[in-house]
């Protein structure tokens, strides 16, 4: 399936999910079933998705707090006094957020970054934005590798970041990373211009 259709499907699906009232519990079961079907058809390994669902953690903590900080009528659950509307809100947040993460991960699992960039181009994203994204995706690995090398260099000199007193060292690494990234950007640009780059990628 072409990437641009997948992105459109994702946006459409999530808009429907977000607009569904949180009291319609059956609808959410249906949404989840739809995602599981898509994942099965696309042969996405469940373990891969579950591991990456960790990005949701901070938000889950927030949702868990909801029943405690919301107001309104309260119910007793396992000896805790919880807000009824808070429980409902927490359920709504968790259900919608989780469906969003699963749907997004299914897109990521079945689409390469290059396909995604081409898909967004077909969706008429401005040419310049698409190009910035293409360059970012292409050099992401290079830049994160550079950062990993700096981390290895710090560690091999016995550096362990423990508290804010160590921030200056880390911040200097951020500075060095910026200078290296910027200079690499200049070199890449000059190398491309000397090979006839006019501001558009050839197909």
């Amino acid at each position: 399936m072409p990437a641009h259709l997948k992105v459109l499907a994702l946006v459409g699906f999530m808009l429907v999910v977000v607009a569904t009232p949180r009291e319609w519990f059956a609808a959410y079961a249906f949404f989840l079933a739809a995602l599981v079907t898509v994942g099965a058809v696309g042969r996405v390994r469940p373990g891969w998705v579950l591991k990456r669902m960790l990005v949701e953690t901070p938000f889950v903590v927030f949702a868990v707090l909801m029943p405690f900080i919301s107001h309104g009528p309260r119910v007793e659950v396992l000896g805790l006094s919880l807000s009824e509307s808070g429980l409902l809100s927490a359920w709504g947040l968790l259900a919608k957020g989780t469906l969003g993460v699963i749907a997004g991960l299914l897109l990521a699992a079945t689409t390469t970054p290059q396909e995604l960039v081409h898909g967004l181009e077909r969706l008429r994203l401005p040419q310049q934005l698409v190009q910035i994204m293409a360059f970012m995706v292409r050099y992401l690995e290079v830049v994160t590798d550079e950062m990993r090398r700096m981390a290895v260099a710090r560690a091999s000199r016995g550096f362990v970041a423990r508290n804010p007193l160590h921030w200056p060292v880390l911040a200097r690494s951020v500075g060095a990373l910026f200078i290296r990234s910027f200079e690499r950007g200049e070199r890449v640009h000059l190398a491309m211009v000397s090979r006839g780059y006019t501001g558009r990628m050839p197909r």
Binding site: M133, A134, S173, F178, G185, V188
Partner: peptide, 26 residues
């Protein structure tokens, strides 16, 4: 100017990488 795409792309990659660097708070 015309350097926009490669440079901005690299700066975006830099921002992404920096967000992965953890600063210990204690």
């Amino acid at each position: 100017d015309d350097k926009t795409a490669p440079l901005a792309g690299l700066v975006a990659a830099f921002v992404f990488a920096t967000q992965m660097l953890n600063f210990p708070v204690g």
